[in-house]
Each structure stands twice: as structure tokens, then as C-alpha cells.
Write a protein that binds this DNA or RNA. Structure first.
Length: 298
RNA sequence: GGGAGAGUUCCAGAGUGGCCAAAUGGGGCAGACUGUAAAUCUGUUGCGUAUCGCUUCGGUGGUUCGAAUCCACCCUCUCCCA
């Protein structure tokens, strides 16, 4: 039995994924499932570049605003909820579009990651987090776990490896996949300089639109600084501005740089996926995408 | 006009005779990443026909086997007294 079809739209930040998603979804009678690790939170709007109701233009969107700021979210939870949402779209006999920039989230659904039975143990994590890195590392080494240089100082990863070990999992287990969809992946990207220009432009526009005020409001509603800091980018840098650490000029400069660095990391991630059909955004991406989708559906 | 101090590799900033192409941080570049992923982490960052050679530490000229480090003069900047 053939797998249901899914169109994935991915790409670095500020390249027009959401807009393209809406256009294509309208054209094909589709619905959109967002794949963004920060847009799942309610109230994180300007800072995440979340699509507005008006911009949705009547197209149904899923997995936006499904968690409370401060709440724990994870790839596994995302995958679960995305599967449910996508299956709903398919049942309604509509074409599902998975649109977003969180590489891990996208891939977990598009490729069907099978997660080990080792859910986060927050009590254990709290314990481990108090330990020095060398201790975390040494315990794993003593247990025969092999660590590559990339994980050597990576505390979150050391903690997760320990967690897997404790719950009887195998830290070396081969990554498993069970694809549930027949996927067409469209990539949205501009040349590097163009991305940088778009990022700068969008940053200023969002600050004008009240992005700093959004963060201030979240704080006054009781969202912790720790959570905001952990979100990174806009929330982290604006928090630092609000606490007086960064002037407005420094905020614009440093945040702009950080977003560009992030875009680069996204590109690094997406580049590895050889199945992406990269659209030429400076030509006619809609026609190009339409042709690809048409042949994908036929 | 007089006095004090400073000029270092993209930036900031260590380094005061050999272990210095030069610490560290930032930035840049490349990368990793299956339950925190906008997070977290790794490598690299003068040039070259590369376990060796070449050109760098404001400029010029000295001292020395050897100088970013010492001396002289010059240029620039900061500060203090006028």
C-alpha cells in the first residue's frame, strides 16, 4: 500500500517559507502543519516570525500555539502531534504541507525517526546538570560509551546519553527510521547576501512592530527569564536588552549577526539532504514548485 | 610649549630578548547534532610547491648569535600641565 503524500517546504529563516506554503496550499486545497520549535508556543509571535491570521488567508494551520511558554516541548512530542495533524489532513482528503525551519523536527516526521524508549527524566536531568562536565563525561567513558569530539563538551548531549544508558537504552544504537509518508521536499533559499539583507530588514520591521514589547509582556505575565534566554535569538537578545546588558544599537547588531549565523546552521543541516528540490526564489518559485508538485501527485 | 602613556595579526586585547605566526575573547569560515535543536557543541582563521620555508607586531636605523620585546630618531593617538 502506497504511503500518503506529503509536501515539505523547508529553508533558512526569512526566506519566505510561510508565504509559499500558503500560496501552494490554496492552489492544491491543502493544509499546513508548521515545523517550528519556537512557534509551538503561544504568545511568541513577532519574535518567532509567526504567520498572522491575515497572512494565513484562510488556509488551515496546525501546530502553532500548542504549548504554554515555559512548558517543556521536544522533538518526540512534535513528531507525535505532527503525525496526528497530518493524518487529520489526509483523512479530510486534503494535501498536507509540512512547513518550517527546524531541521530536526522536519526530519523526524519526513523520515520517520523511531525514538528509543528513553523519555526525558527530569529528576535525573536536574541531578546530572549539577555535575561538572568532566564527571558526566568520565561516567559515560567508564560505562564504555564512545564519545566523539563533538560530544565531548556538549553537556546536553552528555546528559541525554546518560539518560539513555540509565533507562536501559543503547547509546550506540543505530538510528532507526520508519517513514510514514511519500515525501516531496521543496527548499526555499536565497543567495547568502540576499538572506542577510532580508534578515536585517525583517529585524528592523519587527522591532518597529513591537517585538521588544512582546518580550517585556511575556516577562510581566510570569514567563521566566531562564526560559526566554533558553529560546535563543530574539528572546535571548531582547531579554539582555531589557535587563540593560545591551543597548538598542548593540541589540540590533548582535541579534542580526546571531540570526545570520543561525541561518547558516540551518543551511548546513538542509544541505545534507540530497532529496531537496531547491527553488530559485529570484525567478519563479511558484511555477517551479507547481510543476514539481504536479508530477509528484500524478 | 612642557609632562605621562600608547601604537600587536579582521576587531578587542595578552605578550617585555629565544619555548612567538604570536595567549584569550569577539567576529569570519567550515562542520556535528534521533526526546532542550532559534538550543548545545567541534574544527579552523598571515602566506606558500607545507613536519619545512617566507613575510608580520606604527616607520627607519641600531644593539644582539637571536627583537613584537632593548636603544635612537621619526610619525600617529590619548591624557595631564600650560
Amino acid at each position: 500500500m502506497a504511503l500518503p503524500k506529503l509536501v515539505v517546504i523547508l529553508g533558512p529563516t526569512a526566506c519566505g517559507k510561510s508565504g509559499l506554503g500558503v500560496t501552494l496550499a490554496k492552489k492544491y486545497g491543502g493544509e499546513i502543519v508548521s515545523a517550528d520549535s519556537r512557534q509551538v508556543y503561544r504568545g511568541l509571535d513577532l519574535g518567532t516570525g509567526k504567520i498572522t491570521i491575515a497572512e494565513m488567508d484562510g488556509v488551515a494551520h496546525h501546530l502553532l500555539d500548542v504549548a504554554q511558554p515555559g512548558e517543556q516541548y521536544s522533538v518526540a512530542r512534535f513528531q507525535q502531534e505532527a503525525y496526528t495533524a497530518l493524518d487529520g489532513v489526509i483523512e479530510r482528503d486534503r494535501l498536507p504541507f509540512l512547513v518550517g525551519g527546524t531541521g530536526l523536527y522536519l526530519r523526524s516526521v519526513a523520515e520517520g525517526y523511531v525514538f528509543q524508549v528513553a523519555p526525558p527524566d527530569h529528576t535525573l536531568r536536574a541531578e546530572l546538570e549539577a555535575l561538572p562536565t568532566e564527571v558526566l563525561r568520565q561516567r559515560l567513558l567508564d560505562a564504555g560509551v564512545e564519545l566523539d569530539s563533538d560530544a565531548w563538551n556538549n553537556r546536553p548531549r552528555l546528559v541525554r546519553l546518560t539518560e539513555k544508558l540509565r533507562s536501559g537504552g543503547d547509546p550506540h544504537a543505530e538510528a532507526e527510521r520508519q517513514p510514514r509518508y511519500d515525501v516531496l521536499t521543496l527548499g526555499v533559499a536565497y543567495p547568502r547576501e540576499a538572506i542577510c539583507r532580508r534578515i536585517d530588514k525583517r529585524l528592523v520591521a519587527r522591532l518597529d512592530a513591537g517585538m521588544v514589547e512582546e518580550v517585556a509582556a511575556l516577562r510581566s505575565q510570569g514567563v521566566s527569564d531562564e526560559f526566554l534566554y533558553g529560546l535563543g535569538l530574539e528572546y535571548r537578545y531582547i531579554l539582555r536588552h531589557l535587563t540593560g546588558e545591551l543597548s538598542m544599537e548593540e541589540l540590533i547588531e548582535e541579534l542580526g549577526r546571531a540570526i545570520k549565523r543561525f541561518a547558516k546552521r540551518q543551511v548546513s543541516w538542509f544541505k545534507k539532504d540530497k532529496d531537496v528540490h531547491w527553488l530559485d526564489m529570484e525567478a519563479d518559485p511558484i511555477t517551479e514548485a507547481t510543476e514539481l508538485i504536479d508530477s509528484f501527485l500524478s
